[in-house]
Nucleic acid binder design. Structure first.
Lengths: 186, 186
DNA sequence: TTATTTTTTAGCACCTGGTACTAATACCTC
DNA sequence: GAGGTATTAGTACCAGGTGCTAAAAAATAA
């Protein structure tokens, strides 16, 4: 009984590992991988509360998509809260563990940068804006879970180029200060 | 006949739109959304070459996962090709259409930045490095499909801080020049 | 060794969301 | 009304399951 119990346990652990590595494994495949019958696999899954293949794939797709949408920095990183074109803008970025640097809980600099550059671009009322140059300073780090608030202020025109300064804060703490020089093109 | 043909066409366009917005729509739902029978929906799908729900979800899941893995810049963005710790490093980033800015084929600045900052950090031989400040200049844009080659050179120590300069090129064309001031912490 | 309990397995009916195919019906045009 | 397309109904079948029952096998206790 002891032996049996541990056998079942280790089998279920194996099952969990297999699914963690590749959630798109059918009961059939699991059965042959674990050298037991399909019935046993299904019993195990039921006991463990592991949903069926289709459910797993479905949630995978949804999870991944929602992550992509919040992670994909191709548009504005963070949520654009307020915007007065050519004057100022404000965006919020809720940091999650995917944004962490290496194995720490410190938010990777490129998220801070991306939020800043995105809001700088968003603040300019023109379809095609490119970043000519920029300068930035990191004043401290932010941790996973922090909410980054970036404020952009559009400055003077300068040879047809616009200067946008961005300040990013976590609460009262200033994390990043940057100055972007943007060029409007057609 | 003309009317019929255009009706079918517009219905198929509708169908495509619905699926583009929400690929997880069953034939049943499609049928009631389009006010036709399931048979018609299936016929339309067959004519259009649109795969079944499960196939759509499956590919969604896979696509999204692979995108996430290639997109997630939590580690080095780009491929670290060569590395002489505390001296220099070289990384390559193959750009894909997900990296494009808005609806253009110009690569978003934050990918250029992320590659640069990643290689700057990677060039320093220490577990915990943070970016103190940086300055960068975009010299031109790169297009989707371009291969970005970034070279980092570690400069002098300066108050325990290290200066790393990064130059990013596409072929011979210089895209970006940046100077990162990094701090090693415990 | 036998009895009891646990674990594993088999088998069946049923489910969703389809494919692949056939046949009937509706509609439009000439 | 004939001819052709578009739509719909219906059938058999499929994967990858659920949910249930029951038998067989193995382990454990008496």
């Amino acid at each position: 009984m002891l032996k049996n119990k541990s056998e079942r346990q280790s089998r279920q652990e194996k099952l969990a590992k297999i699914l963690a590595e590749n959630p798109m494994t059918t009961d059939n495949e699991l059965a042959s991988l674990l050298n037991v019958s399909i019935s046993t696999v299904r019993l195990d899954r039921a006991l463990m509360g592991v949903p069926e293949l289709r459910e797993r794939v479905r949630t995978m797709a949804q999870d991944a998509v929602s992550k992509l949408q919040s992670l994909n920095p191709s548009e504005v990183i963070g949520e654009l809260l307020e915007l007065e074109p050519d004057k100022w803008a404000l965006s919020v970025l809720r940091t999650v563990k995917d944004m962490a640097f290496r194995f720490t809980d410190i938010v990777s600099d490129n998220y801070v940068y991306s939020q800043a550059s995105s809001i700088a671009v968003a603040a300019i009322q023109a379809a095609n804006v490119i970043i000519d140059s920029m300068r930035g300073e990191y004043k401290g780090h932010s941790h996973v879970g922090d909410v980054l608030i970036a404020r952009a202020k559009v400055g003077v025109n300068h040879d047809g180029k616009k200067i946008v300064s961005v300040r990013t804060k976590v609460g009262d703490r200033e994390i990043f200060v940057g100055r972007f020089i943007l060029e409007v093109v057609e």
